[in-house]
C-alpha cells in the first residue's frame, strides 16, 4: 500500500536478550494502517500487542524487520525520535496514573511546553484538546487533578496526548475500568477524532463491543503473532479463530454462531444489534407472526 501511514514488516522482538530470562514477544509481525483508518488490535495479555504498539512511537526500536511511520524509518539510528513522538501520540493503559501536575490545564500543557511552543500556542492547543475530549476549558483548566472522577481523569490524560497534535493516536485499552456511561462517552470522542478530525487511530482492546463500534479493521494477535486480520465482520464471522484463541465475541455474534451451528441460515457477520434482530426475524417460522 502506498498511502499507508504505518508500515510494520517482519517485526521480531526479544525481551531480556542474552540473559537467562530471554523471551520472544513478537514473531515476524506485519501490519499496515492507512491514513485516517481506525484499526483495533485484539488478543490476550502476553499476546505481544503492547510490545507492538510501543514500536509505533519509538519506545521500542525494531530488532529485526522494519517499522516505517509516515516516512520515518525506525531502523535508522539517527532517527529524530522527538519528531516521531510528535507524530504519534501513545496513550497507555490507565493513563490517569501519569497525571502529575496539580491543575488540569498545567498537566495537559506539559507536552506542548516541552516542545518549546509559545504560551499562546500552548493555550490554544490545550483548549482544543480539552474541548475535543469533552472537558470545558473555562470550567476545568484550573480544577485540581486529584479531585476529578475516574472518567474525567482519563479524559485529562487523553487531552494531554492530544495537545501534542499527533497525526496518529495509539491507545492501549482506552476504556478499561470505566463505568458504562464514561465508556460510551469516551468511545464517541475517539470516534469523532477519527472521523471528523481525521486522526489515524490504532487501539488495543479486550472489549468486542468496543471493537465492533470503532474499528474499520482488526488484527487478532496470539503468542506474538498476527493470527487473523480483516474487517470486524470478517473476524467476527470466523468462529474457529475466536474460539481457538479464546477471544471473546460480542453477544450478538455469539447468538448468531450458535444458531448457525444448529443449522439455521443466519449470517454470523451481522454483529450490530439491529442486524442480528433482522437475522433472527428472517429465520423465525412464518406461522409464528
Amino acid at each position: 500500500m502506498t498511502d499507508s501511514i504505518i508500515l510494520v514488516e517482519d517485526l521480531d522482538h526479544v525481551y531480556m536478550k542474552n540473559t537467562p530470562l530471554e523471551h520472544q514477544a513478537l514473531y515476524s509481525v506485519n501490519m499496515t494502517v492507512a491514513r485516517g483508518e481506525c484499526v483495533a488490535i485484539i488478543g490476550h495479555t502476553g499476546s505481544g500487542k503492547s510490545t507492538l504498539i510501543q514500536h509505533l512511537n519509538g519506545l521500542q526500536r525494531p530488532q529485526k524487520g522494519r517499522v516505517v511511520i509516515d516516512g520515518l524509518d525506525l531502523s535508522q539510528r539517527k532517527l529524530d525520535v522527538r519528531a516521531l513522538r510528535r507524530k504519534v501520540g501513545l496513550v497507555f493503559q490507565n493513563p490517569e496514573d501519569q497525571i502529575f501536575e496539580k491543575l488540569v490545564g498545567d498537566d495537559i500543557a506539559y507536552g506542548p511546553l516541552k516542545q518549546g511552543l509559545s504560551i499562546k500556542e500552548v493555550t490554544e492547543r490545550a483548549k482544543w484538546a480539552m474541548e475535543v475530549v469533552g472537558l470545558s476549558f473555562a470550567d476545568m483548566k484550573d480544577r485540581e487533578t486529584f479531585a476529578l472522577s475516574g472518567g474525567e481523569k482519563r479524559k485529562v490524560a487523553l487531552a494531554g496526548v492530544l495537545a501534542l497534535r499527533p497525526e496518529i493516536l495509539v491507545l492501549d485499552e482506552p476504556t478499561a475500568g470505566l463505568d458504562p456511561c464514561s465508556r460510551k462517552d469516551l468511545l464517541e470522542r475517539i470516534r469523532y477524532l477519527n472521523q471528523s478530525e481525521n486522526l489515524t487511530v490504532v487501539f488495543v482492546s479486550h472489549n468486542m463491543e468496543e471493537v465492533a463500534y470503532l474499528a474499520h479493521r482488526v488484527y487478532v494477535m496470539a503468542n506474538g503473532r498476527v493470527v487473523c486480520e480483516g474487517t470486524p465482520r470478517h473476524v467476527f464471522g470466523n468462529a474457529d479463530i475466536l474460539h481457538k484463541y479464546h477471544i471473546g465475541m460480542p453477544e450478538t455474534v455469539e447468538i448468531l454462531h450458535r444458531l448457525k451451528r444448529k443449522g439455521y441460515a443466519v449470517n454470523p457477520e451481522a454483529y450490530e444489534v439491529q442486524e442480528t434482530v433482522q437475522e433472527i426475524l428472517s429465520i423465525l417460522p412464518a406461522a409464528g407472526r
Binding site: E209, I255, V273, Q274, T276, V277, I280, L281
Partner: peptide, 17 residues
C-alpha cells in the same frame, strides 16, 4: 445485555417470541 435488547426487539415484531 445485548441478548436482552435483541429479545425485546424481536418480541416487538413477533409477540410470540
Amino acid at each position: 445485555p445485548d441478548a436482552s435488547r435483541i429479545s425485546q426487539a424481536v418480541h416487538r415484531v413477533v409477540p410470540a417470541f
